[in-house]
């Protein structure tokens, strides 16, 4: 039992399952999945679909955090990517043409990659603190996106583009497959090769790793590039979902959600050892929580209060001091209850 409890995925999974359980109890329709036109529908399916952008961003964030870094610019990169894609499609005059879409998506994701490379350059080559280096792009990125769209919210009408976020394949949302592929690729690259361990080494002690011959610069740079690339894809999914490029709203606060998902998954913000499976669970948890809040009838604007509660609970559970405090609590309660006659009875 205690071995199970000590597993690093134990608590993240407990939180996710508890959320699902809570939802199911309060409204059984939550777990109901209906089939319509050979497609699955239901709250759980929505969560799979809507979590895709967060999943992509969180995967990149996991790699960045493992190197002891942080990427605040992912939301801005999403805005840039969406703006690039939609502007190209709009300007082409042929929004349904697959070639145009390919160029648009390629350029947009490329823009994300360039942003990530820029972050990586500032951090790994110039040695600037990650929080500040990415803050630069976080500040400037949305401005750039606004310049690309000319200060407007660009909207398009393109069925193939719409398909990415809203389409179905084999009964499941296409966006979910995008998540799966991204998870698989990241997991394979990190764990089937030595990259994962080398990343952890760099995150634990960059200088020691460098002296041990690890190309720390390349690994850190790569992590930010991956984060930018994945955020680029997330930007495509986001803009495909609303079929518009909104430089101000796209990916707003997603960096915080992503960081939360990573922390929720048991990866320490201090860098080093990381868990991709944990991040996956974390991303689903965040998405479930958001849909829970919506279904509870809370105005979406008040959602942040719940997020705050989650942040506090999560960090407290992870805090060693808090655990020690709570660990001593049963003993204290026992000594307290044993003094009362009722307690003695209950204890026996």
């Amino acid at each position: 039992m205690s071995a199970v409890m000590k597993h690093r995925l134990f608590w993240p999974l407990v939180v996710l399952l508890a959320l699902i359980l809570l939802n199911t109890v309060s409204r059984p329709s939550f777990v109901r999945i209906t089939v319509h036109d050979g497609r699955l529908y239901g709250s759980l399916i929505d969560i799979l679909r809507n979590s895709a952008p967060l999943m992509l961003v969180a995967l990149g964030m996991t790699l960045v955090i493992a190197t002891r870094g942080i990427d605040l610019s992912v939301g801005a990169i999403m805005a840039v990517s969406g703006a690039v894609a939609l502007t190209i499609i709009q300007d082409s005059g042929d929004p349904a043409n697959p070639a145009v879409l390919a160029v648009a998506i390629g350029t947009a994701v490329g823009a994300g990659l360039v942003c990530g490379l820029w972050n990586g350059f500032l951090i790994s080559v110039l040695g600037i603190q990650p929080i500040i280096a990415t803050l630069v792009l976080m500040l400037a990125g949305r401005g750039i996106a606004l310049l690309i769209t000319g200060g407007f919210i660009t909207t398009i009408n393109s069925d193939p583009y719409k398909f990415m976020a809203q389409g179905y394949v084999l009964g499941l949302p296409f966006a979910f497959y995008v998540s799966l592929v991204a998870i698989a690729i990241v997991a394979l690259i990190e764990r089937r090769t030595a990259l994962g361990m080398l990343t952890e080494a760099v995150g634990i002690n960059p200088e020691a790793s460098r002296l041990a011959g690890v190309r720390a610069r390349g690994i850190i740079w790569g992590a930010y590039a991956a984060s930018g690339l994945l955020a680029g894809f997330a930007g495509i999914l986001y803009s495909s979902n609303i079929m518009a490029a909104d430089a101000n709203a796209a990916g707003l606060y997603i960096e915080l959600d992503a960081i939360l998902a990573v922390v929720l998954g048991g990866t320490s913000l201090a860098g080093g050892t990381f868990s991709i499976a944990g991040t996956v669970v974390g991303a689903f948890t965040i998405q479930t929580l958001k849909s829970t809040i919506t279904f509870l009838g809370v105005p979406p604007a008040v959602t942040p209060v719940f997020m705050a509660a989650v942040v506090v609970v999560v960090v407290l559970v992870q805090s060693r001091r808090f655990r020690r405090f709570m660990g001593r609590l049963p003993a204290r309660l026992r000594t307290w209850t044993s003094r009362t006659p009722d307690g003695a009875e209950a204890a026996s």
Binding site: T193, M197, L198, E200, N205, A212, G213, G272, T273
Partner: peptide, 25 residues
């Protein structure tokens, strides 16, 4: 500060040198 990687295991610390040379493989 410049030697051990505290959060990694003894085994990982030993093979790090070889692994760093091999790269991703």
């Amino acid at each position: 500060a410049e030697g051990i990687l505290g959060d990694l295991t003894v085994a990982e610390n030993i093979v790090l040198g070889i692994q760093a040379r091999r790269g991703w493989r």
